[in-house]
Simulated assay, not measured.
Amino acid sequence: MTEGPGGAVEKALAVLDALAEHSRVTELARATGLPKSTVHRVLQTLAEQGFALADRQGNYLAGPKVLALAGRVLQRLDPARRARPALAALQGETGCAVHFAMLLGAELVYVDKVEGDKPYRMASRVGMSLPLHSSAIGKAVLAALPEVELAPLLGRLRLTARTPRTAVSPAALRDRLAGARATGFAVDDEENEPGVRCVGAVVRDHTGAVVGGVSVSALALEQELAELVAHAPRVLRAAREVSSAFGAPEPG
């Protein structure tokens, strides 16, 4: 069993996060690495505050305060819903799976996904986080950041090898970011997930600040890199349309 979180806040957040996929105390203890007694105590506190609910069978669920908080967050992300037509159009033009991810702090999170015209489904899902250094959207975001923001962020990133193709040194990553700046889009050539290729472009808000990105994804066995890169103009157009939904000014 892995060592669980240390502080009281960390323990509470770990249990709350695990509630998204687990409902039994034993499962939550296994997922968080915490003793069952600690998990039970945390759940009682969460229930008292409305962040958890217990049913008659001893299962725990996310409580009404979690749902209310999620609703308020989604309201703030209303422009993401308004961007759906651009994402749907991109999927229709390319046949690929289309993703839209937003920066939340120093993390990218999928906020929308349109499945491709394939019998299979990508493993990604709305709410899942994705790495900045190995994903197409992540590299598009990093490449668009001013150096004053990029340098400290790169210093904090863990350049984990997601696949043998992942850039795991700052120098190698900066080389790929330079390529993304030159073309206006970023490529993930099986760098984040084996057998999957993506092309991504950055999305900006009404101030011109980077807020996320749009990408198309396909299996490597179905599309060579050049074939997927051929969709880049469509990805860039979709990213501009999504940016427009956030009130971004038209590029000069």
Rank of each mutant, 00 (worst) to 15 (best):
S129N: 11
L13D: 15
P119L: 07
A140T: 09
Q57M: 12
G105C: 01
E227Q: 14
E10A: 14
I137C: 02
Q57K: 10
Q91W: 15
R234E: 08
H40G: 14
P64L: 02
Q75T: 11
V216Q: 14
R81G: 12
A226W: 11
N59D: 10
A201S: 11
N192W: 09
V42Q: 02
A62R: 15
L221K: 08
R24V: 13
D175V: 08
A47T: 12
G200T: 03
E115R: 04
A209Q: 14
V9T: 09
A62G: 12
A218E: 01
A172M: 13
P5L: 06
C96A: 09
V203H: 05
T45C: 14
S37K: 12
V202Y: 14
E48R: 02
S215I: 04
A220W: 03
A101E: 12
D175W: 09
S124W: 07
S23H: 11
G127Y: 03
H40C: 13
G4H: 04
R30M: 11
A186M: 11
L61N: 04
S135Q: 14
P249A: 06
K36H: 15
V66M: 06
A140G: 15
V196H: 05
P233D: 09
S244L: 14
D117W: 10
A248Q: 06
L219Y: 06
K65H: 09
V235P: 10
R162E: 10
M128D: 12
L130K: 13
V242R: 11
N59V: 12
G127K: 00
L74E: 13
A232M: 00
A136P: 05
L236S: 07
S124N: 06
R41E: 00
S129V: 15
E48P: 04
L104H: 10
D188Y: 01
G213D: 14
T207K: 01
V39Y: 05
S129Q: 06
R197C: 04
S135A: 11
A29L: 09
P5Y: 15
H40A: 08
M1C: 04
I137L: 02
A89P: 01
E193N: 12
P131I: 11
R162P: 13
A97W: 10
A220I: 02
L153K: 14
A186H: 05
T32H: 00
A31C: 00
